[in-house]
C-alpha cells in the first residue's frame, strides 16, 4: 500500500499540477481529429495524472476522492457510450459506427454529424482507458487486496 509522501514540496507541486494535466488531457481528447492524440492518448494522460496523485498523496486520500466503485462505473459507462453510438448508427440504417446516419437525430448536415460522432466515441474511449489504467495501477500497488476490504483480508488470513 502506498503511503502519503511526507515532503511538502512534492505534495504542493503535485496538487498544483494535477488540474492542469487533466485540462491538457481533455484538450488532447477534444482535438483528436486535428492534432496528434485522441481518445486513447488523452485517457492515458488522465490516468497518469491520477497516478501522480496516488503516488504523492497516498492511498487513503485518493480513495476518499475517487473510490473504486466509481472507477469501475466510469469504465463501464465509457464502453456503453462507444457501443451506444455504434448501435444507434446501426439502428438508423447504416453500418456500425457509420456516423453520417446521426444527422437524422442531431438535425445537422452529415459532415458535422460525423465530427460530433467521432468526438462522442473518443470521449467514451478516453473515460474507459483512464478508468482501466487507474484500476490496474491500484491493483498492482496494493497487491490486489484493498485495505478497506476487511472481509476479504480476514478470509485470506484464515486460509494462509
Amino acid at each position: 500500500m502506498i503511503a502519503s509522501s511526507d515532503d511538502i514540496i512534492i505534495k504542493t507541486i503535485a496538487r498544483i499540477f494535477v488540474p492542469f494535466i487533466q485540462l491538457y488531457a481533455l484538450y488532447v481528447i477534444m482535438h483528436g481529429h486535428y492534432s496528434p492524440g485522441g481518445g486513447f492518448q488523452g485517457g492515458v494522460i488522465l490516468g497518469a495524472s491520477m497516478a501522480l496523485l496516488l503516488i504523492t498523496h497516498g492511498y487513503d486520500e485518493v480513495k476518499r476522492r475517487f473510490p473504486e466503485n466509481v472507477v469501475l462505473l466510469m469504465g463501464s459507462v465509457g464502453v456503453l457510450i462507444y457501443a451506444g453510438i455504434g448501435l444507434t448508427c446501426l439502428l438508423l440504417g447504416g453500418n456500425y459506427l457509420d456516423y453520417g446516419q446521426l444527422s437524422v437525430i442531431l438535425h445537422v448536415e452529415p459532415a458535422h454529424a460525423r465530427s460530433l460522432g467521432i468526438l462522442g466515441v473518443e470521449l467514451g474511449v478516453g473515460f474507459t482507458v483512464m478508468a482501466i489504467m487507474y484500476s490496474i495501477f491500484f491493483d498492482i500497488s496494493t497487491g490486489g487486496i484493498l485495505p478497506g476490504d476487511d472481509k476479504l483480508n480476514g478470509e485470506l488470513e484464515d486460509n494462509g
Binding site: A14, A51, I55
Partner: peptide, 10 residues
C-alpha cells in the same frame, strides 16, 4: 515533459 516528470517522481 509530463511523463518524464511523473516517471522521475515514481
Amino acid at each position: 515533459a509530463l511523463l518524464n516528470f511523473i516517471g522521475c517522481i515514481a
